[in-house]
């Protein structure tokens, strides 16, 4: 069940910062490069994350940051994150040629072959990737992968206002549908409102964003009988499945924990929405 389980030969690596810029207020676009023989990176899937360490030792715990795009040929990961606390603030001062310690890739991402077979999706199925706020970046890797696979992909993106970060990247791989909180672009309201207004019929939904949005998607999907996947976040300590800090409640008893809790860092962060209690 876990496509990124044990013995993937991952390690805490020192990666090289290629570039970083602020692409929207408080949102940073960071590209980091790994050594060429770091083979663990080759299997990176959309929806996975990395643990970033504050290199000066002033903070202990790694910060989980979702992968926006993986360019494994060049051993480069693109991370787009929002500054929310002391850890992300420290990362935001990184410049080209700095180094950053990181474990990658982590967690269970989107395995589309499995998603297609599990849900008996037809070849022409519509994949709808929904991202809200800082949940938008990981959806870029999702539509990029679907584009490579020749699948029909839509990106439904929820922004606060007309500051549409990453929109040009999304347009390369998918049709883009927008919702904004203030109604300045696209549909005023939620990503569900925008999906309904677009008339696009989703065969499967892939999503990342704030909890109220994911709850909305989960109930919309179950009411309309659409398989849906949600990407969750939680405070983590180890990031590798040992500390049990980052759990989410589950409908059934979890195979690993033997209670109704599952590890977001290991069994997740991507879950079938019907399996977790949000």
């Amino acid at each position: 069940m876990n496509n990124n389980g044990l013995n993937n030969n991952r390690s805490r690596e020192t990666a090289l910062v290629i570039s970083q810029e602020e692409i929207s207020e408080g949102i940073f676009n960071l590209k980091i490069k790994f050594r060429d023989d770091y083979t663990a990176l080759k299997n990176t899937l959309p929806g996975q994350f990395v643990s970033l360490y504050v290199s000066d030792g002033s903070m202990l715990l790694p910060r989980p940051i979702s992968i926006c795009e993986a360019n494994v040929e060049d051993m480069v990961l693109r991370l787009v994150y929002r500054v929310v606390g002391s850890g992300t603030k420290a990362f935001s001062s990184l410049r080209s040629d700095d180094t950053i310690d990181v474990i990658a890739p982590l967690g269970n991402g989107y395995d589309f072959d499995k998603i297609i077979s599990e849900n008996n999706l037809p070849d022409d199925a519509s994949f709808v990737a929904m991202g809200g706020g800082i949940g938008i970046p990981p959806m870029l890797g999702v539509v990029k992968k679907l584009h490579e696979m020749g699948k029909k992909a839509y990106a439904v993106l929820g922004y606060r206002s007309n500051d549409l970060f990453l929109i040009d990247d999304f347009k390369k791989y998918s049709e883009v549908i927008i919702s904004t909180d203030d109604g300045s672009v696209g549909t005023k309201g939620t990503v569900i409102d925008a999906l309904k207004a677009s008339g696009v019929k989703a065969d499967v939904i892939l999503s990342c964003g704030p909890l109220p949005m994911l709850r909305g998607i989960s109930s919309y999907a179950s009411e309309n009988n659409i398989p849906a996947y949600v990407s969750l976040e939680e405070h983590m300590a180890c990031g590798i499945g040992a500390c049990l800090g980052c759990v989410c409640k589950t409908v059934d008893v979890d195979e690993h924990s033997h209670v109704n809790n599952t590890r977001i860092c290991t069994e997740g962060p991507v879950f079938r929405s019907s399996e977790v209690i949000l």
């Binding site: 405070h235 500390c243 049990l244 800090g245 980052c246 924990s257 809790n261």
Partner: peptide, 28 residues
């Protein structure tokens, strides 16, 4: 027997350390 442990958030960093309240979740 298996224990469910505490609700989340269960961990948070503090200056020079961290707080945890996992609540001894274990599979039994």
């Amino acid at each position: 027997v298996p224990w469910e442990g505490n609700p989340t958030p269960r961990v948070i960093e503090t200056t020079g350390g961290m707080l945890n309240a996992i609540g001894l979740q274990n599979p039994g």
